[in-house]
Write a protein that binds this DNA or RNA. Structure first.
Lengths: 337, 337
DNA sequence: GTCTAGCACTCTGTGTTCCCGAGTGCCAAG
DNA sequence: CTTGGCACTCGGGAACACAGAGTGCTAGAC
């Protein structure tokens, strides 16, 4: 049905349209890409492509524009991820290497990605699930309040103020801290609920109410903070682009953690580190935008996702190359720390 | 020079223009606001106001539009801050009360403010300067690495990974932690540099390289993280507005901490909690936008600033009311924790 | 002296018409 | 199957006219 030349025509249409932002006609096509055939022939092919739904014309007698289905075919079969230049690679490396803590890594990553792709970059904080407890700290604030600080091996720090049901002396707090650390140090976060289940029973009765309160906050922290936090950068890159769904809708989605989460997508079971591309109407909520995302994290333990959001009319090969490269470097950095 | 009626005309022009976004003419003015005079008289007053530079006309024979100078006069002398409704107050209270930690307070505040004003809200993290050390924690990561965690009384947590110049045993780390806490607990952050100055000398010579490294990171943290962090929300509210300087420039400024910092402005020495309003060209960098900001923090010790950024054509009384109210509530919350 | 009414003038924005050109689809010939 | 030719169709820009809103000015009223 679709012979090689028709595919070549589709590829040419996508490339031209992406770079010029104007419907591309048969004549210009035959000229720019040396297809060795006449415009008339190209027209026939275009008619076939349109018949199949890969391209469409905005109005009679305008050039053709790829449809979502056309972009999909282009991404799947007609293009290959474009590797970054050496200079870009070095820039990434030095820029990320300067990060001082996890927050900084994430912030730098998202900015880097935004600048590299000239789109909006989105980075999910590494999830806690597979990380392990490095340290638990209880800091007395007043006699009825302590601050619970949880430090993980990925360098993430969670903090919560706990209101105690009764006054607890500092020495007992200190003891509790020692017990907690003895119990949890080095354990995977997912194991924490089981490990602390019988903790109250192993302590003096008088401590139990306080311990129960602290533990409930601890568990809450594990569940709630799971992998909710997402940041973005590069909103300024949206200024030029035109979205069918409206700029406002895109900006709103960016500020809604939940929506952003859905857009970034779940790690696809078997190959979480594979690049995911969602084109236009394939997206939940935000039709008219495309998303290029991938998982990142050190090899075997996948941590979270990052990606780029932009207009459907984007340069997929370049964007995919940047996303993949950044994900790799960040994974390295995280593995090293 | 400017009698009462002329001022009333200016006020009416500002109010009408803000609500309609269209140049306002003499006839409509005389009708809507019952000025008890004819359009012709209004025209004379308008001519005077234009002469003085308070209003201008986009082109001959269009209505008048306030200039920056006009808005300035309006804000300073013709309007009064509009208090929030009871429902709004209650909404703020309950929404902010649910915050679990400092991050959460800031995040909730910025979203609240954005929603309330339908503009872009900007909140600076409470500065460390006047807060005190609650606890210093050293967590061994590997034998050459420790994580330094600094917890302040405002609930802020700073973390840094420190590379040690040599292997240090855990027991010595623990000892060092005890010394650090004994030395710093409860002290103002600004006093820290002095307090730790002679610390290396008071410890065994073998520990000194490690201590020096850790202290230098600690001091670095104090200086660098000072009050740099700023967050914003409500970028979606920019979608409709038109900025003379261009949407892109505004979005770029929002993502540049430094610029944002400058825009939010320094606390004006004597009355830091006063509302600051910068109108249009009074702004550094971002002409064509206005900023309503104020300091917040508990009474005597001023912590940081928050505010709202929007088009020059904004409803100042309402915006000022919202900013002031939110600042007060946040100050309360922070004082209580 | 201040306000008002009337009037001529000046624009902008909108709707209409017209035309050019890019691009198409189809057909017949190579 | 490809190509050249040809008639057809729209979109978009230029030219134009026109209504409407708003102004400035001047002369008269209070």
């Amino acid at each position: 049905m679709l012979d090689d030349r028709k595919l070549a025509v589709l590829r040419a249409i996508v490339e031209d349209y992406v770079s010029t932002n104007e419907p591309v006609g048969s004549k210009a096509l035959a000229e720019r890409h040396n297809l060795k055939v006449s415009p008339a022939t190209v027209r026939n092919d275009m008619a076939a492509l349109e018949e199949e739904g890969y391209i469409t014309q905005p109005h009679t007698s305008a050039g053709r524009v790829p449809t979502d289905k056309g972009y999909r075919l282009f991404v799947d079969r007609l293009s290959q991820v474009k590797p970054l230049s050496g200079a870009e690679r070095r820039a990434i490396e030095t820029f990320l290497a300067g990060a001082v803590d996890l927050d900084d890594v994430v912030t730098r990553t998202v900015r880097l990605l935004a600048q590299l792709t000239r789109q909006v970059a989105v980075v999910q904080y590494p999830t806690l699930t597979r990380s392990t407890v490095r340290h638990v700290e209880l800091v007395p604030l007043t006699d009825r309040r302590v601050m619970l600080v949880l430090i993980t091996n990925t360098g993430r720090v969670e903090q919560r103020v706990v209101e105690l049901p009764e006054v607890v002396e500092e020495t007992r707090i200190a003891h509790l801290r020692a017990v907690l650390n003895a119990c949890l140090d080095g354990c995977g976060l997912s194991a924490v609920p089981d490990l602390v289940a019988d903790l109250p029973e192993r302590l003096p009765a008088e401590d139990r109410p306080a311990v129960a309160t602290i533990l409930s906050v601890l568990l809450e922290t594990l569940v709630e903070r799971h992998d909710e936090k997402i940041v973005f950068a590069g909103a300024a890159n949206l200024a030029g682009a035109d979205f069918t769904t409206g700029l406002r809708a895109v900006l709103e989605a960016l500020e809604e953690q939940v929506v952003l989460m859905r857009l970034l997508g779940e790690t696809s079971g078997d190959t979480p580190s594979a690049l995911t591309v969602r084109i236009g109407s394939e997206n939940p909520y935000l039709h008219g935008t495309s998303i290029v995302a991938t998982g990142y994290g050190s090899g075997d333990n996948q941590l979270a996702r990052l990606g780029v959001l932009g207009p459907t009319r984007m340069d997929y090969p370049v964007t995919m190359g940047a996303v993949r490269a950044v994900a790799r470097y960040v994974s390295q950095i995280l593995a090293a720390s």
